[in-house]
Design a protein around this nucleic acid. Sequence first.
DNA 1: ACCTGAACACCGTTCAAGT
DNA 2: ACCTGAACACCGTTCAAGT
Lengths: 202, 202
Amino acid sequence: MAARKPKPRLSRERIVAAALARLETEGAEALSMRKLAAELGVDPMSIYYHLPDKQALLLAVFDLVLAELPLPDPALPWRDALRAVGRQFHRLAIAHPRVFPLLIASPYGTPREAQVHQALRDLLLRAGFRAEDCARVTQAIYTYAVGVARTAAHGLRLKPFYEPGAPPPPPGPPMTADEVDFSIELMIAGIGAVLERTQGKG
Amino acid sequence: MAARKPKPRLSRERIVAAALARLETEGAEALSMRKLAAELGVDPMSIYYHLPDKQALLLAVFDLVLAELPLPDPALPWRDALRAVGRQFHRLAIAHPRVFPLLIASPYGTPREAQVHQALRDLLLRAGFRAEDCARVTQAIYTYAVGVARTAAHGLRLKPFYEPGAPPPPPGPPMTADEVDFSIELMIAGIGAVLERTQGKG
DNA sequence: ACCTGAACACCGTTCAAGT
DNA sequence: ACCTGAACACCGTTCAAGT
């Protein structure tokens, strides 16, 4: 008779995937190296053979999630390309409401994050805007995306003040598609206005 | 001879102030109930008489910091009022680079946060915009502020990838005043454009 | 009313060892 | 090469007790 748990061998991939799954379903405080190991049917220290420490594990999870974000389409006019990326990002933030708050709180960047950033900058450069404007606009977009990530996860979150006994609040209500579209158009209008101001473009 | 440490009696205020100071100087991971108690020259459990738990302590710290943010001036035209609040918020975020990442990662709101939110909404209402636009614009502003809080604390933070041995990165480089002003003008231009679109206002 | 101290159920990680 | 297990130095918090 075969073993009930096939124990398909540990690997970096399997660990990171399990960490992501656990994070999504149980929340951040449930993600400990020990519980994760237990779930994988393995000694806590086994994880450390594949990843140096918990911080590295978290960053691997972040990068896995960000890999789902498509890069802006260089064939599209910049407004359309930005709108598409904005919507995709919102979709992702809604899909991973436990991951993004951790991601934006982290002081470390991930490779994928840098890649997306670069792609946005290239998009604006190709649209013909001045290089220093592109850098600043990209920064503004990035800044806004951070905010979307949190708002998507927690909503406006003005009401539920903390009460010691109470269970942690559910991840919602998320930003609606309408609200995000409103925000995106607001940003695009702002970018257009600022860029027209420094050069006759649009 | 008087005691060397006067031990000026424990109080909620003293605890919260010490927590904020510790957070700023030593970073988040150095803020444990035990270390805080040691610094206050007191048994760890003494803190629990004044505050229910660590989460409540953190929220008290957040509210203390946010109390420094002045409300928008109702006498000013909305663009000027928003610009002033934006700059103040950036100044605050720069001044508390260890606090804001925790604040924006938290799922709980604080009373002061709700108060600021309400004041922004009132400002836009008084400016004569439609109520539902005001709500959405306020949400966009809030969303952007969250991003500013993180960018101010960590910068764009695309480069320093995590290395296991290395010490945690310093809190900077912060967003510069120029970059923030660029962002603020971008947002104001966007708000103006969106609002003009739904009604003939400016 | 305000503070203490032992105890409990956890953490992440080091280090030497096993296969 | 890959995994284990004991051990260390921590956590936040409960609970009964002291003043």
